[in-house]
Write a protein that binds this DNA or RNA. Structure first.
Lengths: 127, 127
DNA sequence: ATCCATGCAAATTTTTTGCATTTGT
DNA sequence: ACAAATGCAAAAAATTTGCATGGAT
């Protein structure tokens, strides 16, 4: 299968990682839990996702849904969230970094990370 | 006191609005509830905050804390969140709009709103 | 052998909802 | 009066935690 950084290589972890790798869009904990066909406890799913996030294997983020979503790690990016159909699309633009520099000098705030999500209507939902 | 758009002017609403106006930083529902000194039910606080948000009196947003925060409406802005002390500061820069335009043409996605939060260390927590 | 991971159950936290009653306009 | 707002209690949803057991290295 696949090794995971320095962590123990358990069946649950492999299964969860596989689910995330196959995921076409970011999943929440319950979706992951169901996808591994209940062979793993929900608490374990949460703990594993947290571990993966801490170890840089997945990205954890928040789309203002009252819960978190998890996505296999990829190049730094943001999301387009359709308010009509819920479709989530990746965008890899990063003009935000210019803003970050400005913040650093103007506010003397050390930016370590940022979250940027766009909400609106995807192409097909505009019709 | 103060009138609220076309809504009923109740003591609870006035109290909640007043708390938000005096707030130096964005508050969560429980903080608002405590600030009105339990003269109002928590459920009412939630319903009122939601109503205020829908009517543009307050901004509701999400700082990846597993809960929402509410802030009296002001000029469009974003937040700097210190990961050490939790301090939340407003920033009014908006270079993000250029990005939005790009998204519109490139992805044909209609952006209705976006959320941008910066996380890091504020000036005093860098020492 | 030793930690670490897991399952199970219970608890926590945030938010929502139903319904009868009260209140603002 | 009448629709809207509130309190109270209960439920829902997401996430976390304690603890004994099992498993990976």
């Amino acid at each position: 299968m696949r090794l995971i950084s320095g962590l123990k290589n358990t069946p649950s972890r492999l299964a969860i990682l596989s689910v995330l790798e196959k995921g076409k869009y970011p999943l929440d904990a319950l979706q992951v839990y169901k996808a591994v066909k209940n062979n793993t406890d929900l608490a374990t799913v949460y703990r594993t996702l947290e571990t993966f996030s801490e170890n840089g294997l997945v990205d954890k983020f928040d789309l203002e849904e009252g819960k978190y979503r998890y996505e296999i790690k990829k190049k730094h990016h943001h999301h387009l969230v359709c308010e009509a159909c819920g479709r989530i699309e990746d965008i890899f633009s990063n003009d935000v970094f210019a803003l970050e520099k400005e913040i650093k000098s103007k506010y003397e705030f050390l930016v370590k990370r940022h979250a940027l999500e766009f909400f609106g209507l995807c192409r097909s939902c505009q019709k």
